[in-house]
């Protein structure tokens, strides 16, 4: 066998292994997705959206409390986290630029984006839950805000930097102030990108469970008072799935399905925004 023949055989073996690992990897992932969809659709019903939690074995139980709690916790985190993140990102791109301060903020945010979220839960427990004496929706929102902040900050920074500097210069040449240039020209130019960043940021925190375990904790019933413990889809899912009761487990799958579809939709919409922008 010549050397070249050996090379060709090695090549073929490696290519088969690569295709095989792709099949294994993708197989696993579709297995998870399949399980999610099958169990989720099986568990879905109207009562899920209209009923609150109930003891196991109780017919009329649903996820209304968790859906609304999730909406409150993630909604408030978004309302607080997004403007703060955009402001900080604006500083990095428009004011700080390559300064030492800006670079440090970038680096630290990069690290925080991958840091363990459960640690943020511990931090919020210490500064909010312990002084208040009890778990609360606010504590959950604060934890998610902290997790969301670096994500929004970095995407805003990146997206604003993509706006061509000639656009800024043209506006300055017309005598516009920096504030006007940023809010009227730069933000407009980076709109699609920032929006995508926001969607992905929301998607990311919506799936967080660990930092909520000991901040917003859980509540089996509907509660709209943020200063009280509050249910979320993720923690409810965790509690129900690890319970021994079949009907609770079923509700867990429904929660998993709803949450995943929500997160996947946000991701897909975000991508479409970016694609549309690229297409222009």
């Amino acid at each position: 066998m010549t050397h070249t023949q050996k090379r060709i055989i090695t090549n073929n073996i490696v290519m088969i292994l690569s295709a095989l690992s792709a099949i294994i990897g993708i197989g696993f992932l579709f297995w998870i997705l399949g399980v999610l969809v099958l169990n989720g659709i099986d568990a879905l019903s109207w009562t899920i959206f209209t009923q609150e939690g109930a003891p196991p074995g109780y017919e009329e139980s649903g996820l209304k409390h968790a859906l609304i709690g999730q909406l409150f916790i993630v909604g408030i985190a978004t309302v607080v986290g997004v403007p703060l993140g955009i402001l900080a990102g604006t500083y990095l791109s428009e004011y700080g630029q390559m300064s030492k301060l800006a670079q440090t903020v970038r680096d630290i945010s990069d690290i925080m984006m991958s840091a363990p979220s459960i640690v943020i839960g511990a931090f919020v427990y210490a500064i909010v839950v312990a002084p208040m004496g009890h778990f609360s929706g606010w504590a959950g929102s604060i934890a998610l805000t902290i997790i969301m902040l670096p994500i929004i900050l970095r995407t805003t920074d990146d997206m604003l930097q993509l706006v061509p500097s000639t656009l800024r210069e043209a506006a300055f040449a017309l005598g516009a102030s920096k504030y006007k240039v940023i809010t009227q020209i730069v933000y407009r130019g980076a709109k699609a990108g920032i929006l995508t960043g926001v969607l992905l940021g929301v998607a990311r925190v919506a799936g967080e469970t660990a930092p909520l375990l000991f901040t917003s904790f859980n509540d089996n019933f509907l509660n709209t008072d943020m200063s009280e413990p509050m249910a979320s889809l993720t923690v409810t899912m965790y509690n129900y799935a690890t319970s021994p009761y079949e009907d609770w487990q079923k509700l867990g799958w429904a929660a998993a399905f709803i949450l995943s579809m929500f997160i996947l939709s946000l991701n897909i919409i975000g991508r479409l925004f970016l694609l549309k922008k690229k297409g222009k």
Binding site: E208, Y238, A241, T242
Partner: peptide, 22 residues
């Protein structure tokens, strides 16, 4: 295939845990 891999990276880890358990 590339996009579905990226989307699967976005699925929250709690779902992976639940799948693992059952």
């Amino acid at each position: 295939v590339g996009v579905s891999i990226e989307l699967l990276a976005a699925i929250p880890s709690v779902i992976y845990g639940m799948w693992g358990l059952f």
